[in-house]
Nucleic acid binder design. Sequence first.
DNA 1: TATTGTTATACTCTATAACTATA
DNA 2: TATAGTTATAGAGTATAACAATA
Lengths: 166, 166
Amino acid sequence: MPLLSPEPRTLSPALATPGLLVAQLGRAATRRYKAALSPIGLKPRPTAALMQLRREGPISQQALAESLDIDPANLVAVLNQLEHEGLATRRRDPADRRRHVVEITKRGVKRLDQVERAISEVEDALFSALDPDERLQLQQLLARVSPGNYWCSAEADADPEGFEYR
Amino acid sequence: MPLLSPEPRTLSPALATPGLLVAQLGRAATRRYKAALSPIGLKPRPTAALMQLRREGPISQQALAESLDIDPANLVAVLNQLEHEGLATRRRDPADRRRHVVEITKRGVKRLDQVERAISEVEDALFSALDPDERLQLQQLLARVSPGNYWCSAEADADPEGFEYR
DNA sequence: TATTGTTATACTCTATAACTATA
DNA sequence: TATAGTTATAGAGTATAACAATA
């Protein structure tokens, strides 16, 4: 004898919340990026780091970790690998010798050129259900929600809901 | 002498693609869910499984794994735990004894009631930058993109870009 | 022979604490 | 005393292969 029959289905609406949707979709996206980047010899996180470095120019590890939303301790191995492959460099900041200034190399930029194609194929597959207008709409909504979202809100204005590591 | 100076910043637009945004936001969302669910004694994946079970009613492990977008092999431990805590049950399908029919229990439903509150607090924090209208808009766009998206497109119509495990 | 669920395993990702060198 | 980066480690998530039971 079943514990619960179909009745409970009427209790919950069919549509998942945006947060749950974004969590699930994000995993699917990462899986696809991983597969698409693999032939180029890159993984999602190092790739995201390179893209951020290209966008922002020279930057400290701490700032880079924050913009990637990963723990600074976990960024170390990523940068070791990128540096080892000659895609990024680290050097001490003369003004504060505790800091490392991280920078993308020419080779890193070239590698990113290959990446663009792979990325955009994944995008097309992921968002094929949306027309270009809707895709832009989605992009703009996500960008506004995104933390480290420095183009449209004035920096961290009071940091209304910052999430702390450690 | 720096390898690359600010010039390359002009090459790339400031806005990340929707796929990359969704990947990053998804990780942030999962992290917050994990923290919010922890006092209830649940983790994100088992919680997602319970929610799916409540939505869909009795269902095979295979189908559940597919709707959660996780590997069936990895669902086993999740269900062991849920069953051990009395939140879900497994029983053989008499019609095909290879199948396990999974079902949420009354206790599982009760536990989900507590979950709702935690979830909605996370939602509010995550999407505080959007007004209710925009949040709904985002939800609907994500729902259309989401795989296993059986409410608005007619099932897997030709499965245009299915992603295979193994 | 194919499918469902299971076990085992390897690998990656994430989080935390403790250390160093600099400030 | 505090901060930037590092190391080490434990835990969670992900992917794969091989197996038993059943179809």
